[in-house]
Write a protein that binds this DNA or RNA. Structure first.
Lengths: 241, 241
DNA sequence: ACAAAAGTGTTCTCAGTACACCCATGC
DNA sequence: GCATGGGTGTACTGAGAACACTTTTGT
């Protein structure tokens, strides 16, 4: 394994987590001191990324960063776009930062997103934190654009592939599923119609357990059966031009 | 403008054209002679690509290549994925080729596709040709995989965005539109139901012209109105979970 | 007993689907 | 006049949408 890094190729990870308050992003604090220990010249937040090792797959680089951030080995992930315009790095903060790292001022960034329930992350990396997607802090580089692009991509994916379940624990209630759709798509859904439609799907199976804890009336739990989904998936390929 | 090239960053273009026989791809012949002028050591086809200039946007690089290939300045295009595994270049032909060019043996390729009617291309670049997607020649590198990936992406896009019209001339018949869907999605569509559905769309406007020429009965021509599509597009955002 | 979230049914409308024959033109 | 692709209508079915109240539990 060649652990030297490409100075001009990096991977950025948009880690999306869902909890009962909505969609959250995992960001890293970026601080650089130069003249004065009290007043950093760079002090904002960025997506977590790193340059790619010489002998590493792009997917491997993304998962290496994800593991460093969350301690987790696996999660749903998807490479959704590459960003590489020459003027990506335009403001002084970003230039200072890049020079302090000794990498190229023009870097191609291959962007990935990850999807998981927030509760699954037990140990956060230092200097990182969850932020609700509606209320992000000041971001470095073009990372606001990358996040926007990731959100649009996953909104489309959610409508075509069964990835909504990646945001939920294995066992979930119908209301949790509904809130997941509402948070990611930014829409409101009628509860009765939603339940009717979901219960009718063969791959959503009711299990004989209730969610106990904070709720008042215990809610029935369901699971997503990937097997059944795949076996019945020809029926989802409805042509609807 | 800095015309030096990154040795490890390239752009590959999947140029998709549609004609009455179906979906075609524009490929470039790759030939390399070493010992003998009669028997080349490399003799196959590849997607057209090039390394990116130091001061060029990725999108600009893609369009530069596209123009070189087709002589055209504009077309619908989309960056759909980056390919960059270390073992992308594994066979001898590809290694010989890369060494003859003096570029790195590990290159990150940002892949784009373009969509247009075949007839729009008047002047093909030398050593390039259209191939039907069902009948591709021997391909170098991982270009078969890239093509497959492009096809899956555009099939999904066609269902969500009005990009089918990029494959057609401004004025088209309903049957041409139907054949476009059939070629790209690889399905058969009932003609009567299709016409009913399409004519009902406000953004498909019948114009008072007929297609004359080879056909027997002249067919009515239609145009796609992007304006009307955008103004009515809230209605296409149907939630259909 | 009351607060809070879970759960439940009916009616209406509209879009999708299956399906077979006549029409207008060029040759 | 005939071959070729263009063009049309109906009946059925199923899914989506609108809409308000009862149930079960913890406190």
């Amino acid at each position: 394994m060649d652990f030297r890094k490409f100075p001009n190729i990096s991977v950025d990870c948009v880690v999306m987590g869902l909890d009962h308050t909505g969609l959250q992003l995992l960001l890293s604090k970026r601080t650089l001191h130069m003249y004065d220990d009290q007043y950093p010249v760079v002090d904002d937040w960025v997506l977590t990324g790193d340059h790619v090792f010489k002998s590493e797959k792009l997917d491997e680089a993304a998962n290496r960063i994800f593991k460093l951030l969350t301690g987790l080995n696996t999660s749903y992930y998807r490479q959704f776009r590459a960003f590489g315009n020459p003027e990506r790095i335009k403001n002084d903060r970003d230039l200072l930062w890049v020079k302090s790292l000794g990498v190229d001022t023009r870097t191609i960034s291959v962007a990935y997103y990850f999807a998981l329930p927030v509760e699954q992350v037990k140990t956060l990396a230092p200097h990182s934190a969850w932020y609700p997607i509606q209320d992000l802090p000041e971001l470095g580089f073009d990372h606001r654009e990358i996040i926007q692009s990731a959100l649009l991509d996953i909104q489309e994916k959610v409508m075509n592939d069964p990835i909504i379940f990646e945001f939920l624990p294995d066992k979930f209630t119908l209301n949790e599923l509904q809130h997941a759709y509402e948070s990611i798509l930014g829409v409101e859904i009628d509860n009765r119609n939603f339940r009717k439609k979901i219960i009718a799907k063969p791959y959503i199976v009711s299990i004989n357990e209730k969610r106990i804890g904070t709720a008042k009336k215990p809610a029935n739990l369901y699971m997503f059966s990937k097997d059944i989904f795949i076996k019945t998936s020809d029926k989802h390929q409805i042509i609807n031009i």
